[in-house]
Simulated assay, not measured.
Amino acid sequence: MPLYADLPARRTRQVVADAGCLLVVVASVAAGRAVHAAVAGVAEPARRFADGSTALADGLRSTGGSLGRAPLVGDDVADLLGRSADSAASLARAAGEQRDAVLHLAVVLGLLTALLPIALVVGVRAVQRLRWAARVRDAHRLAGTAAGERVLALRALQRSPGEVLLGLDPDPATAWLRGEATVVGSLADLELAALGVRRARGLTAART
């Protein structure tokens, strides 16, 4: 499959378009990373709260275990501190779940920010390149036969500017109808040039 055109002007446009596509990919990845970092930063307070609540719950349980051995009020104090520790642990779990939800959202938004423009731009560019490659293959195949060359010449008659056609022959349409080899070959070459490619050397020699 041909990757780039033979003629410099068309090849330069293709390279510039591919470079622009690559630039969009890089910019999209950078944007996705920035969105992920920004959203993930929202989870930081929840993380600190969860860590603090966990530490508080551990401290209350440790204190309750120590005071539980005190006479008279030890059991009551230990029970109170145990319930407080359970409440702190519940808060820690809730904060942890909130943190996990925000981090998951950060991943999703980051991926969407990066992948959507990449899929759109790369998909469109891939279709353009594949269509061009298919047209080039078809044109080279047609250029290999006399009948195919007349088809290319007819396409050139339909698509090329009038001044370009008249520069080849005062009456290019009549010359094509008569099958004048020189004019038909020049018109076929004109169609190939519109695709940015040249006739293969072997085909040129065969025609000559």
Rank of each mutant, 00 (worst) to 15 (best):
V121H: 03
G185M: 03
G96C: 04
G32M: 05
V107S: 09
G52K: 07
A147Y: 08
A95N: 08
G123H: 08
L67T: 15
R69Y: 13
L111P: 02
V16I: 14
V151S: 11
W176A: 14
V16W: 11
L7A: 09
L157K: 05
A27W: 07
P2I: 13
A156H: 10
L23P: 02
V16N: 11
A31V: 02
L154M: 10
S186Y: 09
G41S: 06
A46G: 05
V26W: 09
A30V: 09
L165P: 01
H104P: 01
L166R: 15
L91W: 06
W176K: 01
T182W: 03
G74N: 02
A153R: 02
W176H: 14
A181H: 15
R131K: 07
E97N: 08
A188G: 08
A46E: 11
A40C: 03
G167C: 04
G110W: 00
T63D: 03
G162N: 09
V25M: 15
V35N: 02
F49R: 14
R207L: 15
W132A: 04
H36C: 06
A153S: 06
M1P: 10
L56P: 01
A139T: 03
L152G: 02
A101I: 00
A9K: 11
P161K: 01
T174V: 12
T12N: 15
G59R: 06
V29D: 03
V29C: 15
R207K: 03
R93H: 09
T54V: 00
L142M: 13
G110Q: 02
D75R: 14
R155N: 05
R10C: 04
G148Y: 05
G82T: 11
V73C: 13
A146P: 07
R198D: 15
S53V: 00
W176Y: 08
L111A: 13
L165Y: 05
R10P: 02
V107L: 12
L60K: 07
L120C: 10
G41T: 03
L23N: 09
L3H: 14
A173Q: 15
R99N: 06
C21Q: 09
G167I: 01
V122M: 07
L103M: 09
A205P: 02
G41R: 01
L3I: 04
A88I: 02
D75C: 05
G59Y: 06
V107C: 09
L157V: 08
T63L: 15
R125A: 11
T174D: 14
